[in-house]
Each structure stands twice: as C-alpha cells, then as structure tokens.
C-alpha cells in the first residue's frame, strides 16, 4: 500500500515536475534581462530615436552606444556619444551602472570643455527627451521587483512585476511578455497607481546577430499624451574588444575613434 502510494506520488511528481521546473518567474525575469542588456562581454550599436508627439511633430536623437559588462547580470558601463540633434552634437556621456545603488554618471560638454558629474538618483526620468526612460536603456535591476508568472500562451511567458519599493517608481506594476524560444522580452505594459495602463514598450523587430537574439527596433508609447518614440538599432556588434578604460574622463573628452566616428 505504502509502495503504491509512493509510486503514485513519484509518478505525479515526475510528470508535473517539468511543468513546475520549466521556468520560475524569477528565472524568466533574469533570463529576459540578460537577453536585453547583458549579451556578449561588450557591445556597440548606433541608435536613432524618433520622438513623435500627439500632434505628429517629430524630433530625432542619434547616438552611438558602447557597453561593457563588469559582471554578468550585474554592474555595467555605458558610453553614449550624441550626433543629433545638432545642438548636442559631440556631447558624450558615461554611465557606471550599479543595479543595487545610484549609477555614476558624467556628461561632457565640448563647448565648455566641461566634465560634469550628474546627480542622478531618478532612473525613471526620460532618456534624452524621448519616451524611453534611463531604465529602459540600461536595464532595470531584476531584484527591484517581485515577479509573478501569469498564465501565458504557447509563445510567451507573461510576468507581472511589482516593485518592492513603490515610492521609487511611477507605476504600480508592469507586465512583460517573454518569448519562450529565446527569452527576448517583446512587450511591456505599465500600469499606474490606479491600475490603468498608461505606457507600453514593444519590440518591433528581432534579429539574430552573432548568435545573439537582438531587438533592433522598439517602440515606447505614452498612452496618456499620445506621444511615442521608435528606436532603431543598427551596426550592432558584440564582443568587439571594448576595454574598461574607455569609460573614463580621457575618452569622455576624446571619443574613442576606433568605435566612434566624430
């Protein structure tokens, strides 16, 4: 009798185990974050962001972004060099991203030859006046949210992410859709404190680059204002040999010409 029970339990366990073990919410969130922000040891991409307001007027931002991983899924360094709009052309920007505390940021203003240290505790402010936020560009730490698996479908995991510290953010929770094949986060929906959907981010095009599934076109929409921003990523390359020293004052003042064409 005991043996039979054991057999039944074991059988049930074995058969259900793959379902439960298939993917925990935390694991899915971690994998999606890795795919979106940590592939390769380093990377480069040319980014064009077109902001369209509710009246249909457009503004354009153009930049090259260099990325360097200090730790996989941990600290990273970013270098951003602006080409457009014309009045910010030549500005460069360095971020030392720390998932567990405030980032370190420096901005170089070439007209003044000034390296300014940026006080930046608000990671949820607009990136360069677009509908993307700093956290969309450099990634939100997985540890900042509690993740819960919602019923998905064949193609996507759906996660509900609730911030552990609500005071730090403008949303009450957000949902993300993660492609089961490659863990690319293809859509995010942000809900405000009243539970109303107010902001979405969508991957419009995903390409395989050097074996890494890569979002090459994405869109951030502000549903309250009707404005949206489409970002195109071109010349994407991974593991191009970027070194740690690029993310210092030397190269802030003098953009590294092997990766950035003035």
């Amino acid at each position: 009798m005991n043996k039979t029970l054991f057999f039944i339990v074991a059988w049930l366990g074995l058969s259900f185990c793959p379902v439960y073990a298939e993917m925990s919410a935390d694991e899915a969130a971690q994998k999606a974050s890795h795919i979106a922000y940590y592939q390769g040891k380093d990377g480069r991409s040319s980014v064009t962001m077109v902001v369209t307001d509710a009246q249909g007027r457009t503004r354009e931002r153009q930049m090259t972004i260099l990325r360097f991983n200090i730790q996989d899924n941990g600290d990273q360094k970013y270098y951003v060099y602006f080409y457009k709009p014309n009045d910010v052309k030549g500005m460069s920007y360095i971020v030392w991203k720390h998932p567990d505390r405030d980032d370190d940021r420096w901005l170089y203003l070439p007209a003044l030859d000034l390296v300014r240290r940026i006080a930046a505790s608000d990671k949820r402010s607009s990136f360069a006046g677009t509908n993307f936020l700093y956290e969309d560009v450099s990634g939100r730490s997985v540890a900042l949210d509690a993740h819960e698996m919602l019923p998905g479908d064949e193609k996507y995991y759906v996660l509900k992410n609730t911030p552990k510290d609500e005071a730090q953010v403008e949303f009450s929770y957000y949902k993300i859709w993660i492609d089961k094949n490659n863990f690319v986060p293809v859509k995010a929906e942000y809900y405000d404190k009243e539970g109303k959907l107010y902001r979405t981010i969508e991957a419009l095009e995903v390409k395989d680059i050097q074996g890494h599934p890569t979002i090459v076109k994405m869109k951030a929409s502000d549903l309250n204002s009707g404005a949206f921003t489409v970002a195109d990523f071109s010349d994407v390359a991974y593991d191009i040999g970027i070194t740690d020293d690029i993310f210092t004052e030397r190269y802030l003042r003098n953009p590294p010409s092997q990766w950035i064409k003035g």
Binding site: A119, S125, S126
Partner: peptide, 10 residues
C-alpha cells in the same frame, strides 16, 4: 552639493 529630486528637478 547637487541632488536630483526626480521628475527632472535638480
């Protein structure tokens, strides 16, 4: 001392 108070206010 400089501080970012959020909402693009410094």
């Amino acid at each position: 001392y400089e501080k970012d108070l959020g909402h693009d206010l410094k």
